[in-house]
Simulated scan of single mutants.
Amino acid sequence: MTFYICTACGTQFNEGSEPPSCCLICEDDRQFVPPSGQGWTDMAELRATRELIWTKEAKGIHSLQISPEFAIGQRAFLIEGPDGNILWDSVSLLDQTSINRIAAMGGLAAIAISHPHFYSSMMDWSSAFGDVPVYIHADDGEWVQRSGPAISPWAGEVFELNQAILVRCGGHFAGSSVLHCPWLENGEGALFVGDTMQVTLDRRYVSFMRSFPNLLPLSSRAVNWIGEAVRPFRFEAIYGGFSGRTIKQDGSRVVERSVLRYVHAIEGHTSQRE
């Protein structure tokens, strides 16, 4: 019996003697099945062929990313908090080196996931640290492919988590969320966004999509809602879900002007000649 992992999106499934017949995450219109078809691996194979790379992003913030790149290629974050360490988002690989390192840092107090594309091997991460709770928004519970008692759905628009705040933004998924940590960046605050908001390559804006790989936009109403959801919070930095996608200054103002830019474009206020 094996906990199979989809090689396209990195999601780990419930234990079985054979791979699942399909990956529901990939078959959804926000993701895709590769031209070569669905492929499968497991934790043992990942440990034999890849490693987790740690990068200190700022004081109290460490990113974790699989090398060589696997599946979607997202980064997770180990956030040092006043009430214990938080793992924000997850990756498919969990190696012994990282288990030892996190244990030496005090372990994990909680795991919080932005949306289903980053569920990956969240249950293995939880199990390795004493079945620590995994917080996902209840609106996205149908997308959980590996179940377990550690999964802790939260509902509503905000949820307090060890002096951090989970904020439901919607848009990408109904329960797509961000994490606000006010103690980081010398007390100026940091926002961890997964790709509920996608930090653009120029690192001057964020953008918003129902599907990034399939280029499905959101409505202006949905994007305005995202802006309203985070407006009460102040943050200097924005940490996106992928390597290099970090905005270090004026994060709150970046989101405000990004919402305005997106809405103007989607409503046709931007000339085709511009």
Score class of each variant (00 low, 15 high):
V193S: 07
S90F: 02
I61Q: 05
V167G: 00
L108S: 05
S252I: 04
S63I: 05
P133L: 09
H117L: 13
V263H: 02
V263I: 11
L64F: 02
A128G: 09
S147H: 15
A110P: 02
A150R: 01
A103Y: 02
I113W: 05
G148F: 09
N100Y: 11
T196Y: 00
H62W: 15
R231A: 14
N214D: 09
D83T: 11
N214A: 07
S177I: 06
S17W: 14
F77P: 00
Q198R: 14
F118L: 11
I86A: 07
P34A: 10
E80P: 03
T200C: 12
S271C: 09
A138K: 13
S258R: 06
L191T: 05
I136G: 00
L179E: 01
G84M: 07
F192R: 00
A76G: 08
D140T: 07
I86S: 03
E15H: 06
P133M: 05
V132I: 14
L24T: 13
A128D: 09
L201D: 14
L161C: 01
N85K: 01
A71E: 02
I136N: 02
I5P: 04
A71Y: 03
D29T: 10
D29E: 15
P20I: 05
E45V: 12
A138N: 12
M122G: 00
G251I: 00
R257W: 09
Q145I: 08
H117I: 12
K56H: 13
I111D: 03
Q38E: 13
A237Q: 00
L215S: 13
Y135L: 03
P153F: 01
S90D: 03
G268E: 06
L46K: 03
G81A: 10
W183E: 09
I25M: 08
W88S: 00
H269S: 08
R261V: 04
R234H: 14
V167K: 02
M209F: 14
N224A: 12
L179C: 08
T41E: 02
F77M: 09
G241T: 04
I113S: 01
E69H: 13
I102W: 00
Q12A: 15
L64R: 03
R146S: 06
F235R: 04
V230A: 01
L201N: 14
S17C: 07
I136V: 15
N14R: 13
A155Y: 14
G16M: 04
F77A: 00
V178G: 00
E228R: 15
V134Y: 06
R210L: 14
E57L: 09
G194V: 00
R47D: 07
H115F: 08
E51I: 11
R257Q: 12
I25C: 02
A58Q: 08
P213Y: 12
T49C: 10
V223Y: 02
V263F: 05
N100G: 14
D250A: 11
S67G: 09
T11C: 11
E160K: 14
F32A: 06
F242I: 09
A190V: 06
V91W: 06
I226Q: 15
N186Q: 15
P82H: 04
S98T: 15
M123H: 07
Q272S: 14
G81N: 07
S90C: 14
R257Y: 10
